[in-house]
């Protein structure tokens, strides 16, 4: 009786392990505990991932170079931190000041811009604070003074958040004061997608990149309120982690990725991405050169 029980227990455990191992290995991509081939670790800002662009480009790059690409979806701040620590080989981010600091400190090799689009202020259709047709700075000013509408901020060290703070400064505010300004200002501390969903639930305004906004449009009830002005330009760039600083980094493959992203074929794919589905481009190609407003 006792030994039968032991046999039972062990056979259940063994079946479970076998089952999970079989399930894990049955897929082509594999779930082996050890990495099977050369890997490239990419930390990307959420907007490039949640908009689906990375999911679209990843298999093309993997096929071309026979490499397994591991994509970590994080805000620009965390992506830069992964790069500093040497935990990834390359980062794709959108916060110029942070990127330049990253490079001047010796963590990155070169900042290569590969796509751009615009930030938008989106909000509920009835526009309770009456911000339509204003500049981004004036819109923020009116929001802070009239308090007639709520604003959801990323509040998470992302590129979008850095830009939001820049707009507040440009509008003549000390950002610290804004964070204490009252209930109308909400810090979400989450990615762009969840922030949009939250703004929609709360009937609030938020600052978003156009790519993520279009991807989430059907799931929210937000419309574009402000979409003009040079302060809203949003540039995405790729930076390979400096091998002198982090010798273990896969610099060669990271460089391949930079060249891949700026190559004419891929630039065309980036420019056309989402056109069919959303009617306009989510990203504009800008191979290697910084776009000017």
């Amino acid at each position: 009786m006792k030994s039968r029980l032991t046999v039972y227990t062990f056979s259940i455990l063994a079946t479970l392990s076998l089952l999970s191992a079989a399930l894990g290995c049955s897929s082509a991509e594999g779930a082996e505990l050890q990495p099977p081939k050369e890997r490239l670790k990419v930390a990307t800002t959420t907007s490039l991932y949640e908009s689906g662009l990375w999911g679209y480009l990843e298999p093309i790059f993997e096929e071309k170079y026979g490499v397994e690409v591991d994509i970590l979806c994080a805000g620009t701040g965390i992506a830069l931190e992964y790069g500093r620590r040497g935990d990834v080989d390359i980062i794709t981010v959108h916060s110029k000041a942070g990127e330049e600091k990253f490079i001047s400190e010796g963590y990155g090799v070169e900042r290569v811009a590969f796509a751009y689009n615009y930030f938008l202020i989106v909000g509920p259709e009835d526009d309770p604070a009456g911000l339509k047709e204003m500049s981004a700075e004036d819109a923020f000013k009116k929001l802070a003074e009239s308090k007639s509408g709520a604003f959801v901020s990323r509040g998470d060290d992302s590129g979008t958040y850095v830009r939001e703070k820049a707009i507040w400064r440009s509008a003549g505010y000390d950002y610290e004061e804004i964070t204490k300004a009252g209930n109308w200002y909400i810090e979400a501390g989450r990615g762009m997608g969840p922030t949009l969903l939250m703004a929609s639930e709360l009937k609030a305004y938020t600052l978003t990149d156009v790519g993520t906004y279009l991807t989430y449009k059907v799931k929210t009830e937000l419309v574009p309120i402000v979409d003009k002005g040079s302060i809203l330009l949003n540039v995405y760039s790729a930076i390979a982690v400096n091998p002198e600083r982090n010798p273990k980094t896969n610099y060669e493959m990271a460089n391949n990725l930079v060249n891949f992203l700026t190559s004419p074929e891929i630039q065309e794919l980036i420019g056309n991405y989402g056109k069919k589905e959303y009617g306009i481009s989510l990203f504009n190609p800008c191979a290697g050169a910084e776009p000017e407003e």
Partner: peptide, 19 residues
């Protein structure tokens, strides 16, 4: 396939840790 792969990986990692 993707769902089974993810479920299999969850099982494998948890069973391994507990064992």
């Amino acid at each position: 396939p993707e769902v089974f792969e993810i479920a299999g990986r969850s099982l494998l990692i948890s069973v391994t840790s507990c064992s």
